[in-house]
Amino acid sequence: MNEAEFHCDGCGIILQTKNPSQLGYVPVQALEKRDEIYCRRCYRIRHYNEIAPINQDPSVYLQKLDEIANTRSLVVQVVDLFDFSGSWISGIHRHIGKNPLLLLANKIDLFPRSTKWGRLKEWLRKYANELGVKPVDIILCSANKGVHIDTAIAAIEKYREGRDVYIVGTTNAGKSTLINRILKEVAGLDAIITTSPYPGTTLDAIRIPLDDGKAIIDTPGIVRKDRLSEWVCPTDLHVIMPKNTLNPRIYQLKEKQTLFFGGLARMDYLTGGRQSFVCYVSNHLYVHRTKVDSADEFLAKHHGKMLSPPKDPAQLPPWKKHRIALSGKEKQDVVISGLGWIACGKEKGLLDVWAPEGIQVVTRPSII
């Protein structure tokens, strides 16, 4: 038996039986007996929730993405609505060539019921157009909860026109969860592809045959190191990645007040009238309010303790300050990629936002 012909059904990596310490290892007896074959890493994730971080080279996955341009296929980009800018693939239109792009905006189950979905969809379309992308359609869905999956399936079938379907996205956008949900809805199959909250679960392309001889291809998640979710350890990741509908936390701030988001980021409200700041972060993340004048001392005393995650602040780069001026013309969101966002009021103001160096901190028109 030539083991190089076999790939893990969970992550797509080529299987090997020689070295248990290397990726793709599977015992010989498992390779010979099972209809579905999973490498040791996938087996431990699926059965014991053990997560081992993988050192990834982002350029390798981008090269795999470039191969799509030479195919005739429908490309489905899955984006994470909780971290939209951080889950966008930069230059996606250049990677996929002339193939049509269907945009699936995932994790709508995290948003409050009061969300104006039509407005959100138009915001997504405008954002994509500004980046040079014109999707054939935009579908709002939740792979985890199965919301609007039937609409997503119908759209994929409509726009693929008998072609292969490539599912692309950044790590943690929900690509593999989406495919598992589609397989359950269409064929009644239990989860086949390994999923976990830790970046880099899918290691190589996974090809799922369709009845017409074509296939759905799950691709490895594109790594973006400008998100906090790429930096924290698995235990801390469970705290910052929301699993349920967000409970917005409202703070009426005066000048010279600070909000700490665990020990991962900080917002100083420097100048401006008293106004509301609504925090959309994981319900499990501790948010602490204090005064700007005492914030440095408070951080030094409590970082990694009361102000956690992270349990070990040394695992992250040092903080960098981002000066943000609120225009007072419209409501704005301050986004800390991988952590969430703060919806600001309409008043003019000046903020300092502190986050680990290299983490994306941006503003946008309010989406809620």
Rank of each mutant, 00 (worst) to 15 (best):
E3I: 13
G10Q: 00
G10M: 00
K18W: 12
Q22L: 14
V28D: 14
Q29M: 03
E32Q: 11
E36F: 14
C42W: 03
R46L: 07
Q56I: 10
Y61I: 11
Q63D: 14
K64H: 11
K64Y: 13
E67S: 12
E67L: 09
V75L: 07
V76Y: 09
V78L: 11
V79G: 01
D83W: 02
S90T: 13
L102Y: 08
A105L: 14
K107M: 06
I108A: 01
K116G: 02
R119I: 12
K121H: 08
E122A: 10
W123E: 12
R125S: 14
A128L: 04
A128D: 15
K145H: 06
V147P: 01
I149S: 07
A152F: 06
I153C: 05
I153F: 15
A155G: 05
E157Q: 03
K158T: 14
I167R: 01
T171M: 06
T171I: 05
A173D: 13
A173H: 03
K175H: 07
T177Q: 04
D190H: 15
T201M: 01
D204E: 10
I208A: 07
K214C: 11
T219V: 02
P220R: 02
I222E: 14
V223E: 15
R224S: 09
L228N: 02
E230Q: 15
W231K: 07
P234H: 11
T235C: 05
L237F: 11
Q252K: 12
Q257P: 11
G262M: 15
Y269T: 04
S276A: 08
V278P: 07
H284T: 10
Y286V: 07
V287C: 11
V287A: 04
R289I: 00
R289Q: 00
T290K: 00
K291R: 13
K301I: 12
P310I: 09
R323M: 09
L326M: 10
G328F: 07
V335I: 14
S337G: 10
G340K: 15
I342A: 05
G349E: 03
L350D: 15
D352A: 08
W354T: 00
E357N: 09
G358E: 00
Q360A: 09
V361L: 01
T363Y: 07
R364N: 13
